[in-house]
Amino acid sequence: MLLEDKYYKVTDGKTDGPNGIFRIQLLPDSDVYRGHFPGNPVCPGVCNIEMIKECTARLTGKKLFISSIKQCRLTAIASPSVCPELDIRINAQPSDEGFSVSAKISDAEKVYMEYKGEMRVL
């Protein structure tokens, strides 16, 4: 996993067939905040997309490739100080090439990302 233990840490996970909920902790000392942005640490949206991919890989037990994203809405700005802990909810339905994935990143306060797309099994 590319960003696990580098950008985030998984602290809990529950799976039930095609569904999974993972509790993650954002690592405030992650190197990425040196550059995004200097003096203003904000989660890069694309890192949260990678987190969804890695949690889906955990759920399905497969190595995955994001072949398409139908829609991904970034509904609030996330940062380790605003949302140190997040829940990633995933539904992964088997499809022709791999999985049709719907995911949501949220905490008790807000939804940060809503995601729908196809992932191919590598």
Binding site: G45, F65, S67, S68, K70, Q71, R73, L74, G117
Partner: peptide, 16 residues
């Protein structure tokens, strides 16, 4: 200026 991604739509990846 600082830009934030608000939405990604119809992303297709053919090769990395």
């Amino acid at each position: 200026p600082v830009g934030y991604i608000g939405e990604i739509k119809n992303f297709h990846c053919y090769r990395c």
